[in-house]
C-alpha cells in the first residue's frame, strides 16, 4: 500500500489536460485581420477626367532610375523615382515635365535603410517646379529623346553634357552655381534622414528616353530610360554629409512611365499615390 499511494498521486498529477482552446485565435480564423495594405493597394485620389490624344493632354510622369552606391564599400541598391506633371509645350515641340517630388529608396543587404537617404524640401520642389525638365519631341507624334540634361543648382554650362561639375573645393566664385531654392546656401539644399542634416549640392541628370509605347487606350506611355546621375556636395550642416557617394546606373528596371490624368490632378496627389497610380502600367 505504501508503494501504491505515491503511484496513485503520480497518476493524478499527470491527468492535467494540458490543452488550450483560445477564443481569440478562433475569432482570428473566422475573421482574419486584414494585412496592412501596401502602397500599391491603398485607395488613391480622384485623377480627374483623363483626356489624352496622342501626346496631347495632361500626364503624371514617373522616372524610375535604378543604380547602386557604395558608401561603406559594399554595393547598396538604389532606386530614385522622380515624379512630374507633364504636358506638351504650346508649340508642341517638347514635353515639359514639372517636378513634384523625388523618392529615394536605399536597400542595404536587401533591407531598406535611411542611411544617406535624401528628402526634397518644399522650397526645392517649388524651385524645380518653376523650371520644367524639357524633353524635345521628334515631331512625328512619337516620344523619344537623347541626352536630356536636368540641372539642379546650376546654370549656364557651356557643355551641359560633359562639363565637369563644380566641387566644394572650387565652387566659390563659379557663376554657374546658383542658389536655386533661395535659401542662402549654394546650389540646392536636400535633407538627409540619417545622419540627419542638410546637404548643399549641385546635381546633373542625363536622360535618354528610348522610343515610348503609347497604349491603345491612350492612357499610358512607357519606355526604357537610360540615366546618368552626378552629384557634388558644396557643403553640409554635418561634415559627414559633405561626401556624396557616386551612383552607378543599372539598366534593369530603369524606365519612364506616363499616365494620362485630368487637368485638376495635383502634385500632392501624385506624391501620395504614385505607387498605386502606376501599379497597372504596361511593362
Amino acid at each position: 500500500m505504501n508503494l501504491r499511494a505515491p503511484g496513485l498521486l503520480l497518476l493524478l498529477a499527470t491527468l492535467s489536460c494540458g490543452e488550450h482552446s483560445d477564443g481569440l485565435e478562433r475569432l482570428e480564423a473566422l475573421y482574419p485581420t486584414p494585412k496592412p495594405k501596401t502602397e500599391e493597394e491603398r485607395p488613391i485620389d480622384d485623377i480627374g477626367t483623363p483626356m489624352c490624344n496622342g501626346l496631347d493632354g495632361n500626364w503624371a510622369v514617373r522616372l524610375v532610375q535604378k543604380g547602386t552606391i557604395e558608401p561603406l564599400g559594399q554595393p547598396w541598391d538604389l532606386t530614385v523615382t522622380d515624379l512630374f506633371l507633364a504636358s506638351k509645350s504650346q508649340a508642341g515641340t517638347e514635353m515639359q515635365l514639372r517636378f513634384c517630388n523625388q523618392d529615394v529608396a536605399i536597400l542595404a543587404d536587401g533591407k531598406r535603410t535611411t542611411l544617406g537617404q535624401p528628402e526634397t524640401p518644399a522650397t526645392l520642389k517649388s524651385a524645380l517646379y518653376l523650371h520644367p525638365l524639357r524633353v524635345p519631341l521628334p515631331g512625328d507624334g512619337t516620344f523619344a529623346a537623347r541626352d536630356v540634361v536636368w540641372l539642379w543648382g546650376l546654370e549656364g554650362l557651356a557643355n551641359p553634357l560633359t562639363d565637369a561639375l563644380p566641387t566644394k573645393a572650387d565652387y566659390q566664385g563659379d557663376a554657374r552655381v546658383i542658389d536655386q531654392d533661395n535659401d542662402s546656401f549654394p546650389g540646392v539644399t536636400v535633407n538627409v534622414l540619417s545622419p540627419s542634416g542638410q546637404r548643399y549640392m549641385v546635381r546633373r541628370g542625363i536622360f535618354t528616353f528610348e522610343p515610348g509605347r503609347l497604349a491603345l487606350s491612350n492612357q499610358w506611355l512607357t519606355g526604357v530610360l537610360v540615366h546618368q546621375l552626378t552629384e557634388h556636395a558644396l557643403g553640409a550642416s554635418n561634415t559627414t554629409l559633405e561626401t556624396a557617394a557616386p551612383i552607378t546606373p543599372r539598366a534593369e528596371g530603369t524606365m519612364y512611365q506616363l499616365r494620362c490624368v485630368g487637368s485638376t490632378y495635383t502634385c500632392a496627389s501624385l506624391e501620395k499615390d504614385h505607387a498605386a497610380l502606376f501599379k497597372d502600367a504596361p511593362r
Partner: peptide, 14 residues
C-alpha cells in the same frame, strides 16, 4: 476531481 483544458474567451466588436 476534474482536470479541464484551459479555455480563453475572446471577443471582438466591429
Amino acid at each position: 476531481v476534474i482536470f479541464p483544458e484551459e479555455v480563453t474567451f475572446g471577443l471582438r466588436a466591429y
